[in-house]
């Protein structure tokens, strides 16, 4: 047997094995224990399964699987303003992320260029960036709600502010790190500043910019869930909160799974874009 090709195969088999062991342990761990203490039947009727059957509060993998199938069968139902299908909720969240993230791209990349190209601006803006960057985006929420006076826009603002910094810093870093030789060649050829920015600096800094964008989308997706738990209404974060209210851990696990999958997709999308603009030197 050769060793080169089967590496991914072996990794796949190992992944599957880990999953099976995990699911089995989960199943055994959450199986109902011996039935709970003897109860008056009239009393038992008023109690939940956790109390009467000694069932674990944690759902098993089979329960989660069945619920997942049920959700996937009707992903786009709409039973009023507070109860919509998972597909609809994910779409709301992605729309919010797209709006906030899009705005951040529009601000961060030109500003990053400015900072990267001008050492003066770099030094002048640095203290502001350093102070704002580490602030948890959710700390902005009360301020946003108070000043913007619209919860939907506040959520978008929070996404904007959290995806801004990685992109800004990376763009500035990428732009200022363009090789001096290339800039000098451009200068000897008397290339104008706009043309220099678009034909020399942008292609050279693109991989770094995309890395910043990739970090930002990850953060934006992390934050939207928390933001929606706070403002409520729609979105996957609201779904998690609503099911937490109902103490339905099954639905929360499903939401966690889907949030992970969507986050991975977004990340892969930008990774692919970054690869497309990278060139061998």
């Amino acid at each position: 047997m050769s060793n080169a090709a089967p590496l991914s195969l072996r990794a796949g088999v190992l992944s599957l094995l880990i999953f099976v062991i995990f699911a089995l342990a989960w199943h055994l761990g959450t199986r109902g224990g011996p039935s709970g203490p003897a109860m008056d039947p009239e009393y038992a009727k008023l109690m939940g399964a956790t109390a009467t059957q000694g069932k674990s509060a944690m759902p098993g993998p089979l329960e989660v699987g069945a619920k997942l199938v049920e959700h996937l069968r009707h992903p786009f139902y709409d039973r009023g303003p507070n109860d919509k299908g998972l597909g609809v909720q994910l779409a709301f969240s992605m729309l919010r992320v797209a709006a906030g993230y899009g705005l951040a791209v529009l601000v961060a990349i030109p500003l990053g260029f400015l900072i990267g190209m001008s050492p003066l601006m770099n030094k002048a803006l640095d203290p502001f960036i350093q102070v704002m960057k580490p602030v948890s985006p959710l700390a902005w929420m009360p301020l946003a709600l108070y000043t913007i006076k619209d919860s939907g826009l506040s959520a978008i603002f929070v996404i904007f502010i959290c995806s801004l910094w990685p992109m800004l810093v990376n763009t500035a870093f990428g732009v200022s790190g363009v090789r001096k030789e290339w800039l000098n060649v451009a200068r000897t050829l008397e290339v104008g500043p706009w043309r220099r920015a678009f034909t020399v600096i942008l292609p050279a800094a693109a991989p770094t910019i995309f890395t910043g964008m990739r970090i930002s989308i990850g953060i934006a997706w992390l934050v939207i869930v928390a933001a929606e738990m706070l403002v409520g209404g729609t979105g996957i974060g609201y779904f998690v909160w609503n099911e937490w209210n109902n103490l339905s851990i099954t639905n929360v696990i499903i939401a966690i799974l889907l949030i992970g999958l969507v986050g991975m997709l977004l990340d892969q999308l930008l990774a692919r874009a970054a690869r497309a603009v990278t060139f061998p030197e």
Binding site: P81, N82, L145, Y146, K149, D150, S151, M229, L230, V231, G232, G233, W241, N242
Partner: peptide, 16 residues
């Protein structure tokens, strides 16, 4: 009728 996450949020949304 819109479900809301907490008392502070319901206060702010009504004021807004």
């Amino acid at each position: 009728v819109v479900k809301t996450a907490g008392w502070a949020v319901i206060r702010d949304k009504t004021i807004n």
